[in-house]
């Protein structure tokens, strides 16, 4: 599989997604997912078409039960669509791939291994020195230097999610799938982690597909927001967010986008 690493040594200024001319990274075509239950069939996803550009930060926003996590699992190769297809770099996705890493809400880091060993999970086949070099770099990038020997039970939830992030970044993935990765954190840690995530994204340039049900989270992070409607899950609208980082939550533009998202989700913003 011919693949060029899109990462340039010096991070170029980010190009808004509309201006990118490269072929899209992820192509989702007509994806449908049915779950067979005892007596009936549950239609989880219907006719999903979606293109994701290389290096894009894309948020999937929707109420719980709208199938956004299922869609992410299908794109990641953990589940198969009932019909339709997903291609990454033009190759159909069949199974999970170490170049595309999932970060789960429940962290998925191993409690029996130290922070150091967790971050090194994907580097097993590299020479020891190289492993150490990479692990040190990403532990530092997520701000966990000094905790290398700690075990997950000894660190906070936010730190665990940093370990999961460092573990994902250490293999230089070209796509990171995040399924409500900040959902288990307290609200202050969540805000702080959003900032960290943006900083890391800008520095490392991976494509990120980020599932959330939090409107503010999607607005703070995403270049585009795919709003999904529930049962069966469909794309209601794809909302571009043309605001520069750091995004000022107090501006009128932000407010208008937020209202728009609430409308699409079918809830009035004024309670």
């Amino acid at each position: 599989m011919a693949e060029t690493n899109p990462k340039a040594p010096a991070a170029p200024a980010r190009v808004p997604h509309q201006a990118r001319t490269a072929k899209s990274k992820v192509e989702v075509r007509g994806v449908t997912k049915l779950f067979q239950r005892k007596s009936d069939t549950l239609e989880v996803l219907r006719g999903i078409d979606l293109s994701v550009e290389s290096g894009e930060f894309l948020c999937l926003l929707g109420p719980s039960g709208c199938g956004k996590s299922t869609l992410l699992s299908i794109i990641g190769g953990f589940e198969q669509p009932t019909s339709g297809s997903v291609a990454i770099d033009g190759v159909e996705v069949q199974r999970p791939d170490p170049r595309r890493i999932f970060v789960f809400q429940e962290y998925g880091i191993f409690p029996w291994a130290s922070v150091w060993d967790n971050v090194g999970l994907g580097l097993r086949e590299r020479p020891k020195e190289e492993q150490a070099h990479i692990i040190r770099r990403y532990v530092d990038l997520v701000g966990l230097t000094g905790f290398e020997k700690a075990y997950p039970a000894e660190i906070s939830g936010g730190m665990k999610q940093r370990v999961a992030l460092a573990r994902a970044l250490a293999v230089s993935p070209d796509i990171i799938f995040m399924d409500e990765p900040l959902g288990a954190l307290d609200s202050l840690t969540r805000l702080q982690m959003r900032g960290e995530l943006l900083r890391i994204w800008q520095q490392e340039q991976p494509t990120i597909l980020f599932v959330t049900h939090d409107v503010d989270e999607a607005l703070q992070l995403g270049e585009r927001i795919v709003v999904m409607s529930p049962r069966p899950g469909r794309i209601a609208e794809i909302v571009p967010v043309d605001l520069d980082h750091p995004r000022d939550l107090g501006t009128a533009a932000y407010g208008r986008l937020k209202n728009r998202l609430y409308e699409l989700l079918g809830v009035g913003h004024a309670v």
């Binding site: 962290y107 998925g108 291994a113």
Partner: peptide
């Protein structure tokens, strides 16, 4: 074993005996 461990392991390309040694066995210990 929580599925999230097995999924993570498979995502990072662990399979066969290595999956067992690094994930299944320690998760069960």
């Amino acid at each position: 074993i929580p599925m999230v461990y097995v999924r993570s392991a498979q995502n990072f390309g662990l399979k066969g005996f290595e999956l067992f040694r690094r994930v299944v066995f320690p998760a069960c210990l």
